[in-house]
Amino acid sequence: MELILTVMADDRPGIAERLAREIEQQQGNWLESRMATMAGKFAGIVRIELPDGHFEATQQALLGLASEGLAIQIERGHNATTPATEHRLEVVGNDRPGIVREVTNALANLAVNVIDLQTEIEPASMSGGTLFRAKIEFTLNESQSMTGVVKALEALSPDLMVDI
């Protein structure tokens, strides 16, 4: 059985280790994760695999970490049923309020399934402003095209560049 854990806590050393120790004690296998610190908070998402019959004890143990300041949500994972291919692209443009909504709206309108979205702003060396950068991993089914995705994103703004 696979579980997806979301973890939030005030940032401090040892959070990932404490979580890993508890998963190992429950005979779980840590399969993959994404973790970050933002504005003094630790945020993580972890996919683990458990032997059959270990869900209740693992759930109780992980939720018990709340006494140590870890807020954990647990969901059962499942496999995708629609065949799809994975793609990656990067979008760069002048930062402005609403740009994330514009990009995600364009993808949603095409029924693109986003599986990883990383965004950041950085200084624009030439203009003195800020640049928006998004790294997007997504899947397309056989009726969708990468060309359509790129055209939709480039149509958002003349300064928006899409790199596959």
Rank of each mutant, 00 (worst) to 15 (best):
A71N: 14
M1F: 04
R18T: 10
L117F: 11
I45M: 15
V91P: 05
V162G: 00
I4E: 09
A124G: 04
V112F: 14
E90R: 14
G93W: 00
L107P: 07
A152Q: 08
V46S: 06
N113H: 09
D159M: 04
A20T: 05
T82F: 07
A80E: 14
I121C: 11
S145N: 12
V7S: 04
G148A: 11
A36L: 09
I115Y: 05
G128Y: 07
S33W: 02
I72V: 09
D95I: 08
D116L: 15
R21G: 10
R47G: 00
N29R: 01
I23P: 02
L89M: 02
A39F: 01
H87K: 01
L5W: 00
R101Y: 12
D116F: 08
R96G: 07
L156P: 10
F55P: 14
I23Y: 04
A71F: 13
R12Q: 11
N109A: 11
G28E: 01
D95C: 08
L89A: 04
V100M: 04
A39C: 01
I115Q: 09
S33V: 07
I15D: 07
L63E: 15
L50P: 03
I45K: 10
L31T: 03
S145P: 03
A155M: 03
T147V: 14
D116W: 05
K41Y: 09
E49P: 03
N79Y: 14
D95S: 11
T6W: 02
R21F: 08
R101W: 12
E32K: 08
M35Y: 01
K135H: 14
L131M: 06
E137G: 06
G14I: 08
V149S: 03
N109C: 13
N141L: 06
V114D: 02
G44F: 01
H78V: 11
M146I: 10
Q27V: 06
R88C: 15
E68Q: 13
A16Q: 02
N105Y: 13
P83Q: 03
T119G: 05
F42D: 03
Q26T: 06
R133D: 05
N141M: 04
N109P: 03
R21P: 04
P83R: 04
R76H: 09
S125G: 15
T119H: 08
G129L: 03
I23W: 01
A9P: 09
H54L: 14
V162Y: 06
I121W: 14
G77E: 05
L117W: 11
M161L: 09
D163K: 12
R18H: 14
Q118Y: 13
L31D: 02
T82I: 13
L117Y: 05
A43M: 05
N105A: 10
A80M: 15
R12G: 04
T147P: 03
I115S: 10
G77P: 01
Q26V: 10
